[in-house]
Design a protein around this nucleic acid. Structure first.
Lengths: 169, 169
DNA sequence: AGTTTATGTCAGCCTTGTTGACATTCCAAG
DNA sequence: CTTGGAATGTCAACAAGGCTGACATAAACT
């Protein structure tokens, strides 16, 4: 089923992909990712946090009340690594960890107002860059952008990604 | 094609960009980048190298005979950091450092055959994923993908990126 | 001759990833 | 009710790869 999608373009020539073009795409990913993280990095730095904190804040905000285990799966790091970050966020009063009501072994994670404020600042910086890029590239491009990115994810991850709010545009 | 993309082409054009959509794009970047680096990471690991080595190999291959300084600009790290990586690559016989002919203070960097072999293995893994993603998404999407990524880079970087072989598709 | 540039290198620090070991809590199956 | 195992937290140790600062050379420039 994955095949046959080509026909969509009226039998158009199906991607002549030279190594050159592919390498160019690879470089585009590399450089764009740098830009993508540059703005939040500056804000984080001013607060004494790193990218790991940003990721935690982002996904806690995304899925209010998520458990630690769920967060581990999404982030793809070890619990020890996440825990270090999480601990400082909790100590600093950005994140609240509540004992689960159904299963009291679990902890449900929430942003405090303070945490929400920082998350908002970080994501606003990032959204602003994304918005600008989208504007510069146009609507057609935006659709293509998402399609390629999604196709590039590992299967397991893509499922999680698609299940995260907003199913399909 | 129906030019102008959407319907509205008037003044404040197109793109209703909800925060939701922007956040979704941000997550797509995050997850896709993970997939993007997953395959090379496995190969690198087997050789006892890390992502930093991959980046060095990639750009030395891209611009044969580049100087250390040039590489520093492209990679955006300190010379100490690059040097650590470069030293092991030279010691292991993957990279050759020749004294500059015009200016003998400079070192020109080249991949040895061994270095070329590894670079090829790494980039082939990455190109394969990129190729698959492109195929799955279609030609339109590919163009859009590159456009958005380029718009997302910092200006300075974008210039370097565009000047790197293959000027514009 | 004196200054600047390109590179290398030593030392030390930080973040964020890893493993392994172990304690605690507490759900759920027997 | 006991117990196995899941979910979580935490301690310790280590590695990669960023960073800064200081200093050494050699070559080029003025």
């Amino acid at each position: 089923m994955a095949e046959g999608s080509n026909s969509a373009m009226g039998g158009e020539n199906l991607l002549f992909l030279t190594d050159e073009q592919l390498r160019k795409g690879i470089e585009a990913m590399f450089f764009a990712y740098r830009g993508f993280t540059a703005d939040p990095d500056r804000i984080l730095d001013a607060h004494g946090y790193g990218r790991a904190h940003h990721r935690a804040l982002h996904f806690i905000n995304r899925t209010h009340g998520t458990t630690v285990n769920n967060l581990l799966n999404i982030l793809g790091v070890t619990k020890q690594s996440l825990n270090r970050v999480l601990r400082t966020l909790i100590e600093d009063g950005l994140v609240e960890s509540r004992v689960g009501r159904k299963d009291r072994r679990e902890r449900n994670l929430f942003l405090t107002e303070k945490g929400d404020t920082l998350e908002r600042a970080l994501s606003e910086a990032q959204r602003e860059r994304m918005r600008a890029a989208y504007r510069a590239a146009g609507p057609q491009a935006v659709a293509g952008f998402r399609q390629v990115l999604e196709a590039m994810m590992d299967d397991e991850i893509r499922r999680q990604y698609l299940n995260m709010r907003d199913r399909r545009t």
